[in-house]
Amino acid sequence: MLKYILRRLVTAPLVIFLLLVITFTMVRVAPGSPFSSEKATPPEIQERQRAFYHLDKSIPVQFIYYLGNVVRGDLGPSLKYKDLTVNEIISRHWLPSFVLGTTAMALALVMGMTAGILAGLKPNSRWDYSSMTISMVGITLPAFVTGPLLVVVFSLKLGWFRVSGWDANGFSKDIVLPAITLSLPYAARIARLMRAGLLEVVNQDYIRTARAKGLREHVVVLRHALKGALLPVVSFLGPAVAFIITGSLVVETIFQVPGLGRQFTQSALNRDYGLTQGLVVFVGTLLVVLNLVVDVAYGFLDPRIRYD
């Protein structure tokens, strides 16, 4: 167990380092320079600019400078918004993404677990078939299909919500449609995992023992079966965080949520690769850390697991 955690602790920085190497190389190899503008700058000024950003040094030295900056938490400047740094942009836009992501995750857990338990308790019943068919739909339909369809039905036809937009003050009913759109695929996956987990567990001896003790059915289910069946769901949470972050690229674009996902898409389309690079490093590091946390937690939750 300890060995596993140690190994994960060693791999995680390695992954982040690789992430930095790839982003750095990509941006350096890319055609065009951030200083190329329509007006010709005098060579002396170009020289000064290059010196200021250490671009006159060799590539490995540049990388070390870059690494130093990242380690100190400085993700560099944005090339399009000249007076903003990536750090400032992140501090301005992380909140909507965070609120949306956590709401969607909570929603996915509630919907997915409910459907999964209903299906898993009565396998091959009508409940099972209908919830599994719906979850197949949820897995297959991408957010950019469900999102616009929800907008057409609930905003345009029924007029319950705004088509897009986000209340800057935080929670408002603007969050409903984006959160549902974002949560559907995860709810679907969680439902399947929950069902599979329950089916696996119900035939095991300790459940039979619990029944034989004469415990009431809901106690057997809630206290005993559920605990064992939850493990696959927990292990899904790590990758799910990653999915939620990528998923929000689309959802934030559809619903014009001023979060990091939208910033990322915009920066990519604007070719603002200072910002793109900074956001990739930020989000990538976040992902690696969260995955690590989930994996380690999983190791503690299930003593049977041996990672060798």
């Binding site: 791999t11 995680a12 992954v15 690789l18 992430l19 790839i22 982003t23 990509m26 941006v27 990653a242 972050i245 990528t246 990322f264 990519a268 690769y273 793109t276 690079q277 956001l279 990739v280 989000v283 990538g284 992902l287 690696v288 995955n291």
Partner: peptide, 10 residues
């Protein structure tokens, strides 16, 4: 562990 989607975009 690397979020490749971002790299494809870049």
């Amino acid at each position: 562990a690397i979020p490749f989607m971002f790299f494809v975009i870049i």
